[in-house]
Design a protein around this nucleic acid. Structure first.
Lengths: 232, 232
DNA sequence: CGTGCGTTTGAGTGAATTCAACGGCTGTGG
DNA sequence: CCACAGCCGTTGAATTCACTCAAACGCACG
């Protein structure tokens, strides 16, 4: 997919060109080959860990990679599989939010990422910001996969409330802009389950609902625990 | 988050700077204000539809937006909520893969995206490609949310098999690089359900499994139907 | 010929769904 | 002012799909 050469057409820039056939071994272009190092990883070896500094970008040359996130009780969500030709490790922040591990013995090309961020910024601050924004959305999407793939209804609601509180908090209370059906479709639940779970959290004194769209977070600790965040 | 001015520090480039407080109305910077147009959308109005050309980027000035995807039987998955300050609409391809709708009456800044892609490409083909790759991953992540949020076990397995066939097809048969546990954690299922579902698909003649890691897709139509793809 | 790992199969359980009804606003019109 | 319709949200009862717990199978390897 990404051959590390300058794309010639808009279609290629858009990532739609250069049909890839057999991807068992992806080509290492001169350009990046010079900048990076080739490393081999054994099956199940960690390529980078969650919360480790995100100083490099990675390209799969052969083998396969998974990125995954663990909950404190061991539940795991794999965010993506990367196969030969795929580039991964792009992060909007300073650290990786997922761990990356080799699924099979794999050869990986590793390059410093700072050069790209700096290049993007030097030439166009706006491009740098848009790229960063894209990486942020990617991160949020991958976080949300953990919610959809591995969390129960109560945990989903807790995560949702904390997300909303963080993003639009009016100090203490959250004013939800969306109806229950939208929350349900976001969290992969039914409207009834959303309603029941909110009611239960209110009965337990974790939240208060002066109105159906207005939610007061009463017990942050419990919400954090349900969200699997006690440290972070 | 993204104030449309050139970031001054690496931390800002990384999207970690500029603490945002009340986001009820995001600032419209000069830079982009000049380039774009402000538009208002009523509650539930469509901002762009699935499969429509992705010619613009969007920034929420006030209100709230959802991006969502519908299955043919009406099941819906919301991929993200966008609140004031958020930029959305970045696509690696020529068309949007999600629809965007206003949740409440909203004011949206709209700018042509081509300028950014071209700027990124002119200055650094590699930055353009990395950004595109990031957008591709974002798209895949959002597609996967539909799987995790709304599909049953059979549909998840079908989608997974088609994805793997597309990405590493050796003509007809798929050689899976990962164990059942990884498939389970990717699809948000248990290893037992993965196994049972594969066995059932084999009994139904939809696939064949000459070995546990080798899968032959026998009935593409059924898989496509389970994947909710008859046209696309 | 065991040992260990990955996978499959079976039986019973449970969390979220489905189906159904009801409650509470808000705005409109008699 | 009240009646009513139309949403939106809540609550209840029964069902179901995937999960949990448990055991067995097959295959590679020493």
């Amino acid at each position: 997919m990404l051959n590390w050469r300058v794309a010639e057409t808009a279609r290629e820039v858009a990532g739609l060109g250069t049909v890839t056939g057999d991807r068992a071994e992806a080509p290492t272009s001169e350009l990046l080959g010079l900048m990076g190092a080739r490393m081999n990883f054994e099956r199940n070896a960690e390529i980078f860990g969650e919360e480790e500094p995100a100083d490099y970008l990675y390209k799969v040359l052969s083998g396969a990679v998974r990125i995954c996130k663990l909950m404190s009780d061991g539940r795991r969500q794999i965010g993506a599989f990367y196969l030969p030709g795929d580039v991964f490790g792009m992060e909007p922040g300073e650290v990786h939010r997922f761990a990356a591990e080799a699924i099979a013995d794999s050869s990986i090309l590793i390059v410093k990422r700072s050069a790209f961020i700096i290049a993007a910024r030097r030439n166009s601050g706006m491009v740098a910001e848009l790229w960063t924004e894209t990486m942020t959305h990617l991160q949020q999407a991958q976080e949300h996969m953990l919610v959809l793939g591995r969390k129960n209804a109560q945990e989903r609601i807790a995560t949702f409330l904390l997300e909303m509180a963080r993003r639009l908090s009016k100090q203490g209370a959250v004013e939800l802009p969306m109806p229950r059906q939208d929350i349900a479709d976001y969290l992969g639940l039914t409207i009834e389950t959303v309603s029941r779970t909110l009611t239960q959290l209110e009965r337990d004194g974790v939240i208060a609902m002066p109105a159906s769209r207005r939610i007061v977070l009463r017990n942050q600790t419990t919400l954090d625990r349900l969200n699997d965040t006690l440290a972070a």
